[in-house]
Design a protein around this nucleic acid. Structure first.
Length: 565
RNA sequence: UGGGGUGUAGCCAAGCGGUAAGGCAGCGGCCUUUGGAGCCGCCAUUCGGAGGUUCGAAUCCUCCCGCCCCAGCCA
């Protein structure tokens, strides 16, 4: 849904406005985007980033970037760097507010100590497996740990020794004393600190005990003075626990509000599964242009504007939903249509000889760079006797409604002339079409005819002699099923991978004006789609990624004809 | 047969007791030197279901049904 004056506010904005009105937190709005640096950001995170940073902008507040780095065994600096790059690229600025849960480890330890002193936490010697069994089930209450009644003094001592490194991983944990019979399993004396002898990407070997997310998250929000702590639905059950900590410790109370995470058709948005695709080589890396990661989308040629627009349009609610990937592509095309420079490229060349155009002669024709924006100017494109057109733009025996080139038929070459096909040269052996002989009408320069004669088709083309070659990578959706996770029992989501998601065309013919394009540059290849220069490009060897094809009405007509014939 | 959420079109999503916004997709048409773009029109007699309250219900009440999440020393 698009935001504008006429539409009403979503439930989060409604709530924030009412908080402002009642002067809660003195009308302050302070949010945060809290990624764990254990993977690359994806389009689902973009929803959260746009929400949190967007809210701060709209309500004149602030938004922190905070890394929730409480699990040293999964987190790496590579991920924090990529996350910072992606958030920036999306167009958001956290200024000097780059925080880490690990910045607060000392404070968190102090909070845990306070809990112990209040008799609200204890050191438990049960094994992980025992704790699990003591927890009970969804329908049965749990049992209290035999260690729950240790004295404050003993707990303090034990916890201190845990920190000092006197115990092995897994031998003891610190637990909150809440209620083993709570119907909310999160309240059944949850673990809040565990022993992990592992070096942390920021704190190194300073710590060998680490707070659990459930303990750290709400308290970090509190420390930072976060007024509205937005997270996804699955944390709704954890809110009572966070609130319990805040209450026991009597500290600033952030308000957590949960919303539904983004799901996208034909794609998988789970860090674990994306990691799997990367590690097992199904894609070439986190930034493979087929990946729904921010870095993948960037490399594919998506613009930050289009992603932000998408995030504005998908809406915000509490019901689980799957947004149609068509909406994402729509936002992309809408933006690229206005911004991308038009250029001609022939992906699958067929030679055309203009018999009545003198050998050796060349002309330089005017071409607009973007019909949507005259301000983008014009360029010259060379025309000569030998050209390439797209193979699919010629049919010896044209089907109904085909208005491209065919024997004795006249079409327009975009920005150039009308041409008429006179002769088809075939390979004697294979019978395949090798070359076309055409004549052009010199009176139609620029693509107009003074006699008012109309031509139905307009083709893109390049001059053979002037063309530059480039590699083009065409992408299709990574998964062939709408919901890639929908598999039979025992089957893996990877069986839904599309084996044809990448097609490489090693040598396409492009008009010479693109010869000094740089990685990241975006173009519309006329009548084909939007493309951008891949960083794999070398001097003299350009590589383009197809960002998204143009809408193809002709393909639709063909499909319909097929189904009715 | 515990607890927490949630059901409005193919997909999102407004709506908050006065007679179903909008976007995407789809379908028709117009226009077009990109079969692109643009423009115009169509697309829920009905809101998970059944009862009830009311002059009036997607909105309130009751019961029922579906779907999602929770039994990590992950986040």
């Amino acid at each position: 849904m698009k935001k504008n004056e006429d539409t009403t506010l979503d439930f989060i904005r409604t709530r924030i406005e009412s908080d402002i009105k009642s002067n809660k937190n003195n009308g302050r709005v302070h949010t945060r985007f809290p990624p764990e640096p254990n993977g690359y950001l994806h389009i689902g995170h973009a929803k959260s980033i746009c929400l949190n940073f967007g809210l701060a902008q709209e309500y004149n507040g602030k938004c922190n970037l905070r890394f929730d780095d409480t699990n040293p065994s999964k987190e790496e600096v590579e991920y924090v760097e990529s996350i910072k790059k992606d958030v920036r690229w999306l167009g958001f600025d956290w200024e000097d507010r780059e925080y880490y849960a690990s910045d607060y480890f000392e404070k968190l330890y102090e909070y845990a100590t306070q809990l112990i002193k209040k008799g609200k936490a204890f050191v438990c010697d049960l094994t992980a497996d025992q704790i699990k069994r003591y927890r009970g089930t969804l329908t049965e209450p749990g049992k209290e740990s035999p260690y729950k009644n240790r004295s404050v003094k003993e707990n303090l001592e034990l916890f201190r020794k845990m920190r000092k490194g006197e115990y092995e991983d897994g031998s003891r944990v610190l637990r909150a004393k809440i209620d083993m019979s709570s119907p909310n399993l999160n309240m059944r004396d949850p673990v809040i600190y565990r022993i992990v002898h592992e070096s942390h990407h920021r704190t190194g070997d300073k710590w060998c005990i680490y707070p659990m997310y459930d303990f750290a998250h709400g308290l970090c929000d509190s420390i930072e003075g976060i007024t509205h702590s937005l997270c996804t639905l699955e944390f709704e059950d954890h809110r009572p626990l966070y609130d319990w900590f805040l209450e026991q410790l009597n500290v600033f109370h952030s308000q957590q509000i949960e919303f539904a995470r983004l799901n996208l058709s034909y794609t998988v948005l789970s860090k674990r599964k994306l990691l799997e695709l990367v590690e097992e080589g199904y894609v070439k890396g986190w930034d493979d242009p087929r990946m729904p990661t921010i870095s993948g989308l960037r490399r594919r040629g998506y613009t930050p504007e289009s992603i932000r627009d998408f995030c504005d349009r998908i809406g915000l609610a509490k019901r689980e939903s799957v947004v149609d990937i068509d909406l994402l592509e729509h936002c992309l095309r809408e933006h690229l249509n206005k911004k991308a420079k038009r250029v001609m490229a022939v992906l699958d060349p067929l030679e055309v000889i203009i018999d009545n155009f003198p050998e050796g002669k060349e002309e330089h024709l005017d071409a607009e760079n973007n019909p949507e924006d005259p301000g983008m100017g014009k360029r010259k494109i060379p025309f000569s006797r030998s050209l390439y057109i797209e193979k699919e733009d010629f049919r010896e025996d044209p089907p109904r409604k085909y208005f491209r080139l065919a024997p004795d038929r006249e079409v327009r070459l975009k920005h150039a002339y009308y041409i008429k096909c006179n002769q088809v040269i075939k390979d004697k052996g294979t019978g395949k079409i090798k070359r076309l002989h055409c004549t052009y009408d010199p009176e139609t320069k620029g693509g107009w005819s003074k006699d008012g004669r109309k031509v139905k088709g307009t083709l893109h083309w390049v001059s053979a002699r002037h063309a530059i070659k480039a590699e083009i990578r065409l992408y299709d959706r990574l998964f062939q099923t709408k919901n890639p996770l929908d598999v039979k029992k025992g089957e893996d989501f990877k069986k839904n991978l599309n084996p044809e998601s990448l097609k490489i065309i090693p040598s396409c013919m492009l008009e010479p004006s693109v010869s000094n394009a740089r990685p990241g540059d975006r173009f519309q290849f006329l009548r084909k789609g939007y493309f951008c220069v891949d960083p794999d490009s070398k001097k003299g060897h350009l590589v383009f990624n197809q960002t998204v094809p143009l809408r193809d009405t002709w393909a639709k007509i063909l499909k319909k004809q097929k189904t009715y014939e």
